[in-house]
């Protein structure tokens, strides 16, 4: 059953991806990206990652959609037709993709319970966290305690993003004309 859902979701994701590639109205693209996130959240649920699914839905379909829409409102929403031949990107993508596929050949099969991933530290989390931490949601236990430091880093990343956005967007915007002929451009116009 879950395999069927899995396949359906993956197919839908692929279709959405291709649509994302082809559509040039950015509003539509943003909406599709939101849908892509929702679909992936569904996939995460199928693969038992409920926390991730929740977060992906909130972030991918929620926040980032809002941010994209806000940015589009500020910056316009039409995309030009790509001017140059996509040969180089195609080659890069092709090589990267093939390399990855090549890498999967020796990868343990999907869903195998004996895969090494599940038997090194994961065992410890599942078996010992009830004694060591004492909360049922192992993801939270790992997130906030075993790897709490990563989460602190994550919090800092979010904070860093806020600092960055404040530095970029706080304060008055310069008019386009003023920005266009600013004397700082280039070196010839030194003061």
């Amino acid at each position: 059953m879950s395999t069927v859902v899995d396949i359906v979701l993956l197919t839908l994701l692929a279709a959405t991806g291709i649509a994302l590639l082809r559509i040039r109205n950015l509003f539509a693209v943003v909406m599709l990206a939101g849908i892509y996130s929702l679909l992936s959240a569904g996939l995460f649920t199928v693969m038992d990652a409920v926390d991730v699914a929740f977060t992906e839905a909130a972030v991918g379909a929620g926040i980032s959609t809002v941010l994209f829409l806000a940015a589009l409102a500020l910056a316009g929403h039409h995309e030009n037709r790509p001017g140059h031949t996509p040969l180089l990107p195609l080659v890069v993508v092709g090589v990267t993709g093939l390399a990855l596929v090549y890498g999967t050949v020796d990868m343990p099969g999907f869903g195998g319970a004996d895969n090494p991933v599940h038997h090194h530290v994961a065992d410890h989390y599942l078996e010992e966290s009830p004694h060591e931490i004492g909360i049922p949601n192992v993801v939270t236990a790992v997130l906030a305690s075993y790897r709490g430091y990563d989460t602190m880093g994550e919090t800092t990343v979010v904070f860093a993003a806020a600092v960055a956005v404040m530095l970029l967007l706080a304060g008055r915007r310069r008019s386009r004309a003023a920005a266009g002929d600013d004397g700082e451009e280039g070196g010839a116009g030194h003061r």
Binding site: I63, T155, V158, F159, A162, V165, L169
Partner: peptide
């Protein structure tokens, strides 16, 4: 801590984008 930061950041970022518009 995470809650406070994430709330603060998301609200700030929202303000900044909305405010600029």
């Amino acid at each position: 801590g995470v809650l406070v930061t994430v709330f603060g950041v998301m609200a700030s970022v929202f303000y900044l984008f909305a405010g600029r518009g």
